[in-house]
Design a protein around this nucleic acid. Structure first.
Lengths: 234, 234
DNA sequence: TCGTATCACCTTGCATGGAAGTTGGCGCTC
DNA sequence: GAGCGCCAACTTCCATGCAAGGTGATACGA
C-alpha cells in the first residue's frame, strides 16, 4: 500500500512550479488544437486564462519556442506554429535518422537486453494487429506511437530520447489528423516485426535499414496524401 | 552624471535584446571554459557581471538549459553542465545518426546541387590536408568542423541543422581538448574524400554508410583516449 | 476619394520588491 | 567531542510597474 520506495534523490518530490504548470498547460492546449495553429495570443490573455501573472507564462513560452511549438513575436504576442508539408518532410527525416540509429544500437546490445526489448516491441505490435482487426484506429495509433517511442527509449541515449520527444510533440497534430486518412495499416505490423527480428538476432545493419525503410515508406505514403487534400498548414 | 556606458546613444547598431546578449555572452563563457564545468553561479552574480538585471539572465538561462549547457537548480543557482565520457558517447551517436542521414539526403539531390556541395566539401578537405602537412592543428580543427557543419547544412533540413548546432555546442569543449590528443588525423581526409565521392555520384547508401563509419571510427578512437586519461568530466 | 501623418492603445522588455525555499554555521545539549 | 536544532543569509520564484515599440484607426490635406 505504502510505496516501498526509499526517497533517495530528487525525483520523488516535485512541487509544481507555476512555470512548469504553464508549460504543460500550453503544450497540451497546442497538442489538442485548443490553441489552433496560426492563432496569436497575448501573454496577458494566457496568464489570465491560467490564473497567474505574465512572468511564468513568458518563461514557459521561451521553452515552447525552443521546442519549436510557438514563436514569440517581439511586442506582438505568441504565435502557435503551423506545420507546412515541408515541415512534415523535415520531421520525417529527423525521425528516420534517429530511429535508424536507435535500432542499430539496440541490435548491438547484449542478448538479454535485446530479448527484453524485442519482447516489449512485440507486445506493442501485437496490440496494433489486434486493434487493426477490431477497426480501432485510436488504439492502433497509441500502440504504434508506443512502438516508436519504445524503440528510441530502449536505446538508452538520453539525448536521442529528448530529440525524439521534441520532434514528436511537433508532429502530434499532424499524426492525429493523418491517422484517419490512411487506409493501409497492415504494412506497418509486418515491417515492425521485421525490425524486431533484426534486433533479436543482433543484426545492426538490418535493423537500421529496416527501421529506415519503414519510415521512408510511411513518409512517401503520407506526403502525397497531405498534398492531395491541399493542406497547406496544420 | 555619467551613467556607465552609453545606454541610448550607443545604439546606432540595432540592439537585439538584453536576453539575446545574455544568452550569447553566457554561451561564449561556457564554450571558452571561463565558466568551467561544475561551476555554480547565481543569477545575481552573472547579472552584475553583464551589467543587467536578473530577468534577462534568468530567461537566457532557461534557453541554455534547454540547450543542455546548464542546469537550473531551483533556488540554488545555475550549474554549468559537465560532460562525462558517457555523454560524449551519446553525442557521437546523435551525430552519427544526423550526419549519416544528411549525407544520404545530399546524395539524393539533383546533380547540380551535388556538384556544388561536393566542391565545397572538397575545398574544406583540401584545407585539412594542407593544415595537416603544415602541422597546424587549429586550422585542421576549423576545417574539419566546417566540413561536418557544411555536410549537415547543405542537406537543407532546418531541424537537423538546429539539432546539429545544439549538439556541437555541447561537444565544443570536448572537441577543443581532444584535438590535441589525437595524433592520427590522416584517416579523416581520405574518409572525407570517400564521402564526397559517394555524394558526387549520387550513391545515397554509400554516402550514409561512409559518413556513419567515419564517425564511428572517430568515436572508437576517442573514447579510449578519454578513458586512458581518466577524464571523468570535462 | 485617396494618401499621409498622428495618436491612442496594446503589446512585450526589463527592473525590482516581497515571499518562500535551501543551506551552512553557530550555539546548545548531552 | 558529537549530535541536534535553530537562525540568518542567500537563492530563486513570481507579481507588478514603467517604458518603449508596434499597429490600426482617424483626422486632415490634396
Amino acid at each position: 500500500m505504502i510505496r516501498g520506495r526509499a526517497d533517495k534523490d530528487e525525483s520523488a518530490d516535485r512541487r509544481p512550479s507555476l512555470v512548469e504548470d504553464a508549460y504543460a498547460a500550453m503544450k497540451d492546449e497546442i497538442r489538442e488544437s485548443r490553441f489552433p495553429p496560426g492563432y496569436q495570443a497575448s501573454e496577458q490573455e494566457i496568464a489570465l486564462r491560467l490564473g497567474m501573472s505574465r512572468t511564468p507564462v513568458h518563461e514557459a513560452a521561451i521553452r515552447l519556442q525552443e521546442d519549436g511549438l510557438v514563436r514569440i513575436l517581439p511586442r506582438k504576442g505568441i504565435l502557435i506554429c503551423a506545420l507546412a508539408p515541408e515541415d512534415v518532410r523535415e520531421i520525417y527525416d529527423v525521425v528516420i535518422a534517429i530511429e535508424g540509429r536507435a535500432a542499430a544500437l539496440l541490435a548491438d546490445m547484449p542478448e538479454v537486453r535485446r530479448e527484453a526489448t524485442a519482447a516489449e516491441l512485440s507486445r506493442l505490435t501485437t496490440t496494433m494487429a489486434e486493434a487493426e482487426a477490431a477497426g480501432d484506429l485510436a488504439a492502433w495509433g497509441r500502440a504504434d506511437e508506443g512502438f516508436h517511442r519504445t524503440l528510441v527509449e530502449r536505446a538508452g541515449n538520453g539525448r536521442m530520447i529528448r530529440i525524439n520527444q521534441t520532434i514528436n510533440d511537433q508532429a502530434h497534430r499532424a499524426r492525429m489528423l493523418t491517422l484517419k486518412l490512411r487506409r493501409e495499416l497492415n504494412a506497418s505490423v509486418s515491417e515492425h516485426r521485421q525490425i524486431i527480428e533484426a534486433i533479436r538476432t543482433g543484426d545492426a545493419e538490418a535493423a537500421q535499414e529496416r527501421a529506415h525503410r519503414h519510415r521512408v515508406r510511411a513518409r512517401d505514403e503520407l506526403l502525397p496524401l497531405l498534398a492531395s487534400f491541399g493542406l497547406k498548414h496544420l
